[in-house]
């Protein structure tokens, strides 16, 4: 007897690849699962032997088109703690220097069959391009002024460790919001978990169309549980740019000093800091500073992200055409 296998009985094709491109792609459940996984890894790091065999035999490529200390080192260490092989490619000294396009670089690295490509790039949408042209899971480690989703996740992790809750907290984000991918990711992440956000900074650096309370008055940080200080990017302050008249004037009006903080108000910063510009060194090193804890959270959260995209995460890349959006 011949039995015909109908189409719906055949095994389905490959499911869509899981990526982490934007906080906007995550649900509340995704965030809870990622933070829970990170907590588990944190416990394992307290053991004598810190290496886990979880991702043995997997290849993780770190493709960095911008300088980075904490993000690139923590992704590399996260991969190593999970026993994955790692390959780090920086634009300086690679074929990128010779004018190779992002697409060609991605195809070249894709030929090694990496399981994950972690990419940082100065242009919006670069991770989406890599996701389209390679078979790897893609993790966005910062694209232009658009997104830095692992930073937002590690900040949520840090906040929960400190406050034991997320919902109902109030965070003031202070400084150069306009040029900050961290601020854009945080806004989405905070909205997802029910954290109230207030943006504070000079008028030209506060995009008026962002969906959050905003104020140019530093007094607006007063009610916040946490003051999240953004980096003042010196390169934005070139003569003639005129976003603010001078760094001196910026510090005087928006710099975070002890005098401007309430007792017990916590302070965060994504690094690297310009001590004495956006943040007083005594604040950065005070007991109310969560800055070094953010760095430690970065390691376990990135372990969780690598584990999640390779095993259970939910996120699918949406490479929509313009016509579909319209």
């Amino acid at each position: 007897m011949i039995r015909l296998v109908t189409d719906d009985l055949r095994p389905p094709g490959d499911p869509p690849k899981r990526h982490l491109l934007s906080v906007g792609d995550l649900t509340r459940d995704d965030v809870e699962r990622l933070l829970g996984t990170a907590r588990t890894f944190e416990t394992s790091l307290e053991r004598h032997v810190k290496k886990l065999p979880t991702l043995k035999g997997h290849l993780i490529v770190n493709l960095f088109y911008e300088s980075s200390t904490r993000t690139s080192s923590s992704f590399e260490l996260a991969a190593k703690r999970l026993s994955a092989d790692t390959l780090t490619v920086k634009s300086v000294g690679s074929s990128v220097d010779k004018g190779e396009s992002l697409k060609d670089t991605a195809l070249t690295l894709g030929a090694y069959d990496p399981d994950v490509i972690v990419i940082r790039h100065p242009q919006v949408g670069a991770p989406q391009l890599v996701a389209r042209v390679t078979a790897a899971h893609v993790v966005n480690a910062g694209d232009g002024k658009h997104q830095h989703p692992t930073q937002a996740l590690l900040d949520l992790y840090t906040l929960r460790e400190e406050f034991d809750r997320l919902e109902g907290l109030h965070v003031a984000i202070v400084g150069d919001v306009l040029h900050s991918r961290v601020a854009r990711s945080l806004l989405q992440a905070f909205a997802l978990v029910g954290i109230r956000t207030t943006l504070v900074g000079p008028p030209a650096l506060l995009p008026r169309e962002l969906p959050a309370e905003a104020s140019t008055d530093i007094e607006a940080i007063r009610d916040a549980d946490v003051v999240y200080v953004l980096r003042m990017q010196n390169e934005r302050m070139e003569a003639g740019a005129n976003f603010v008249p001078s760094l001196r004037e910026y510090s005087a009006r928006w710099g975070i000093t002890r005098e401007r903080l309430r007792a017990g108000q916590k302070v965060m910063h994504p690094g690297p800091m310009n001590r004495g510009v956006e943040i007083d060194p005594r604040v950065a090193d005070s007991v109310d500073s969560l800055i070094t804890r953010q760095v430690r959270s970065g390691l376990v959260v990135r372990m969780a992200v690598l584990y999640d995209v390779l095993t259970g995460g939910p996120v699918g890349v949406q490479a929509l055409t313009a016509a579909e959006v319209a």
């Binding site: 232009g144 997104q147 991918r181 995009p207 008026r208």
Partner: peptide, 13 residues
């Protein structure tokens, strides 16, 4: 275009 989409995506307006 300088508006909500550029602000959210981080594009110069």
């Amino acid at each position: 275009h300088e508006g909500r989409v550029a602000a959210e995506l981080g594009f110069a307006g």
